[in-house]
Every structure is written in structure tokens, then in C-alpha cells.
């Protein structure tokens, strides 16, 4: 198991390299460049800028230079935010996005799993139907509709929470964005849990557990829950990926100083280094999460271990 873990860790490096390479060449293949702007710069200024950022070099040597700087942990300068390096930009915004994302995924798991379990145990009752209808709503209504609606309700009418804006370490400012962000994965996790719980409750070993005279709560928590969480574990990586893209919407609507916006802005501005930096950060996060999920599988089902 430990050997396997390190093998996977080693395999992550080439994966990351491939992602970086693909992003690099795709970005450069897109028409335009970082210094094409509304007001046209004088050709000599344009050329100077290109030269100082190394954009006049052949693409392969640009690629080589970028990889070389990466080896020292340097993401390079931003082409757009000229006073900042990419590392600085990401370091500023990352804590906000990370906090937002972690709370959202914990909320999605912490509410989605019990909700799905409850629905399964009350299969075909009104509780089940109500939960699943809400889940469909949560999956279907997009974040950019949910967040303004929540803002309207809790901010404008009820005055409970701020509609937008940001203060450091303020839970109140995070509340609505986190809820909006957590809703779709929460709904999806509830549905997944309900489905697998229904299946597991019909398994032979659950029959055994009841035959042993164990109370229903023990049967569910000790015997049924862990195998029922397998599909949820498989969904964890896609869930975090959807929260990452969701945070981009949420941050711009709620005006949070996270890094979500850099991905879109960077791509539109052809801010090559910023986009690459973001891609590296997000990929690393997802790949590590994938490793974590593998460990989780082994815990959920010992047959996976070897």
C-alpha cells in the first residue's frame, strides 16, 4: 500500500508536466498576445515589451525558459499585473479561495451524506421525495442564479448577512458564497448517498447485522455507511473541480479577492504565466486529492488493500 502510494506520487510529476505543456502550447496557439490592447502601442514599445518578457524568442526556447524557472519554484512575472509576480498574486488570493472551497466541500459532505442516508431510510416517503426534489433543484439551478437570490433574500430583505464584499476572517462575508458554492455538490452527494445506501441496505451482510439483533442505528452507522460512501469517494475529485470552477463565479459576484477570477481574466488577457500558474496550482490540488481518495478507498473497503 505504501509502495503503491509512492508510485502514484512519482507518476504525478509526469502528469503535471503534460498538463503544463499542453496548457503552454494551447495558450500560445491562441491568437493575440498579452500586449494587444484597446489603445494600440507603438510598434517599438510593443517590440521592447516582447523582448523584455522573452516573447520574441522561438516558442521552444520560451518553453524551456519557463520550465527552468519552474524548477526553482518561480512562476514568473505576470504579464498583466505588471508590478506583481504570479507567485505573489496567487499567494494573496489563494487563502480566500481555499477557505471558501474547503468550507464548501465540508458543508456538502457534512449535510449531503446525512440527508441522502435519511432519504434512503425513509425510502418512498414524503421525506424522501422532498429531499430528492430539493436535490434536483440544487443540481439544476446554476450558482450565478442561486447567489444573487440568496443575497436578495438574506441581505437585502432580511438584513442578516452582507450581500457582497470581504473582510479578513469574517465568517459573515463568506456565508452566502459558501452556501451557493456548496449547493450543487451537496445535492449530488445526497443523491449518490441515497442510491448506494438503498443498495447496501439490501445486502446480505446487513441482513446478518439485523439478525444479530443490533439496533438499526448501529447497523447503519457501523455496517452500512462505509460501503455506501464508495460512490461519494469517487465523486470527490469531480466535486472539488466543480467547486473550483464555481468559486470563479462566486468570487466575482460577491466581490471576494480570491484567485478564481485569475483563471478567466488571465486567459482573456493572454496572461500566459498567470494562467499556467493557476493551472499548476489547481492540477496539483486535484492530483493530491486523487491520491487521498485512493487512501480513502482502502479505508472504506479493505479488499482494495494489498
Amino acid at each position: 500500500m505504501i509502495r503503491y502510494f509512492f508510485l502514484r506520487l512519482a507518476a504525478a510529476v509526469p502528469t503535471l508536466l503534460m498538463i503544463v505543456t499542453a496548457t503552454f502550447f494551447l495558450m500560445h496557439a491562441a491568437p493575440g498576445g498579452p500586449f494587444d490592447q484597446e489603445q494600440v502601442l507603438a510598434p517599438e514599445i510593443q517590440a521592447n515589451l516582447q523582448r523584455s518578457y522573452g516573447l520574441d524568442l522561438p516558442i521552444w526556447s520560451q518553453y524551456g525558459r519557463y520550465l527552468a524557472s519552474l524548477r526553482h519554484g518561480d512562476f514568473g512575472p505576470s504579464f498583466k499585473y505588471k508590478d506583481f509576480t504570479v507567485t505573489e498574486l496567487i499567494a494573496q488570493g489563494f487563502p480566500v479561495t481555499f477557505t471558501l472551497g474547503v468550507i464548501a466541500i465540508l458543508l456538502a459532505l457534512g449535510i449531503g451524506i446525512p440527508l441522502g442516508t435519511l432519504a434512503a431510510l425513509h425510502h418512498n416517503t414524503s421525506l424522501d421525495h422532498a429531499t430528492m426534489s430539493l436535490a434536483v433543484l440544487g443540481i439544476a439551478v446554476p450558482t450565478f442564479v442561486v447567489l444573487p437570490f440568496l443575497g436578495l433574500l438574506f441581505g437585502v430583505y432580511l438584513h442578516w448577512l452582507p450581500v457582497a464584499g470581504w473582510e479578513a476572517r469574517s465568517i459573515r462575508h463568506l456565508a452566502l458564497p459558501v452556501i451557493a458554492l456548496a449547493l450543487p455538490p451537496l445535492a449530488y452527494i445526497a443523491r449518490l448517498t441515497r442510491g448506494s445506501m438503498l443498495e447496501i441496505m439490501g445486502a446480505h451482510f446487513i441482513r446478518t447485522a439485523f439478525a444479530k439483533g443490533l439496533p438499526a442505528s448501529t447497523v447503519i452507522l457501523r455496517h452500512a455507511l462505509r460501503p455506501a460512501l464508495m460512490p461519494v469517494a469517487s465523486y470527490l475529485v469531480p466535486a472539488v473541480a466543480s467547486i473550483m470552477t464555481g468559486s470563479l463565479v462566486v468570487e466575482s459576484i460577491a466581490g471576494l479577492p480570491g484567485i478564481g477570477r485569475y483563471l478567466v481574466q488571465g486567459a482573456l488577457n493572454r496572461d500566459y504565466t498567470l494562467v499556467l500558474g493557476m493551472v499548476i496550482i489547481y492540477s496539483t490540488l486535484l492530483i493530491s486529492l486523487g491520491l487521498l481518495v485512493d487512501l480513502l478507498y482502502a479505508w472504506l473497503d479493505p479488499r482494495v488493500r494489498r
Binding site: A203, H204, F205, R207, T208, A209, R222, H223, R226, P227, L300, D301, P302, R303
Partner: peptide, 10 residues
């Protein structure tokens, strides 16, 4: 069904 009658993860 002894093969499936025990809880796999316990």
C-alpha cells in the same frame, strides 16, 4: 451465503 453474509470492512 457465507461469502456475502459478513460485513466486508469490519
Amino acid at each position: 451465503d457465507p461469502l456475502t453474509s459478513l460485513t466486508p470492512h469490519l
